[in-house]
Write a protein that binds this DNA or RNA. Structure first.
Lengths: 157, 157
DNA sequence: CTATGTGCAAATCTTTTGCAGGCTA
DNA sequence: TAGCCTGCAAAAGATTTGCACATAG
């Protein structure tokens, strides 16, 4: 069995305001605003907060909101948003990709017990030094994932 | 189509010496030395060098060496080695896990063009600061992946 | 009107698993 | 011998794709 993690429990309500800010988000990136994309955008940035989702978690949020977008479209759309620079893709687990609406380079906490991803305060991470990019290459990004284990599970296991 | 990356081109030759050092590697971790595990261990650490593999790349190396280990067993064995502390698992791409025979915490370069993973010099990475683990949690590991883009592809694309 | 986007179902790929038989300690 | 391993084939998941239809600009 495979547990689907709840990424960010409180998704934006899909009201007018949410759709509006979602639409602006799309417009800013020059992404064509279809009904599906506006729905997804509204859920993702409707309340101005950044959000971490997997295709599956976003798909479920769509259903909860009463809207309808196919799973394949959710996948395609997340890729489109990533390609448009609207989202970041983070991989922590070989079987799932996480997408973050915050596109600035910043570290993440990965909670091993719940398999969820949250932001780590960017200001708290600083490199004293980083290696030079090897000859002929250039650093495109530095991913930092801080894996967390819950202390003292104290339960049956 | 899906290109299978060649991880570390020169695998150890599976000679007596390689099998020997592989066997010691297993013994040190208290892992039962079956024929398959010795074959894999010999390929992984037979020449004393650390190595990055995916299940698929290691499976092919086994075939090249003339030995035979099933793919399912390669997967199981990599997990067993990881659980025994003999290897590290690194995930960079949502569709593949990389295993590293070097178990010390150290940064990696991920070459986006060839989808390969190499070590970054650990001495070249240092954190000036890291966030405190949130209340009730403890940092189990910090993964640093430095993504590299080849400069000036200057080719047909 | 035309290029893009969407939905569906099917295809791909990677990884895991159930089970019967094998092998180490 | 007993328990852990293996191989095989099949299952399980995640993601992508082909194609016919819909729709934004």
């Amino acid at each position: 069995m495979h547990y689907i993690p709840v990424m960010d429990k409180a998704f934006a309500h899909l009201d007018q305001a949410a759709l509006q800010s979602g639409a602006e988000w799309l417009a800013r990136a020059g992404v064509r605003p279809t009904r599906q994309r506006q729905t997804l955008a509204g859920l993702l940035v409707g309340d101005g907060r950044d959000r971490h989702v997997t295709a599956e978690s976003l798909f479920m949020a769509v259903k909860d909101s009463g809207e309808s977008v196919s799973l394949a479209t959710v996948y395609n759309t997340l890729r489109a948003f990533r390609d448009a620079g609207l989202m970041n893709e983070i991989t922590v687990d070989a079987t799932r990709s996480y997408f973050d609406t915050c596109v600035e380079e910043h570290p993440h906490f990965f909670w091993e017990d719940s398999q969820t991803l949250t932001d780590a305060p960017a200001s708290e991470v600083a490199f004293e030094r980083l290696p030079q990019a090897p000859e002929g290459a250039r650093i495109s990004r530095v991913d930092v994932v801080i894996r967390l284990t819950r202390e003292q599970a104290a339960s049956t296991r």
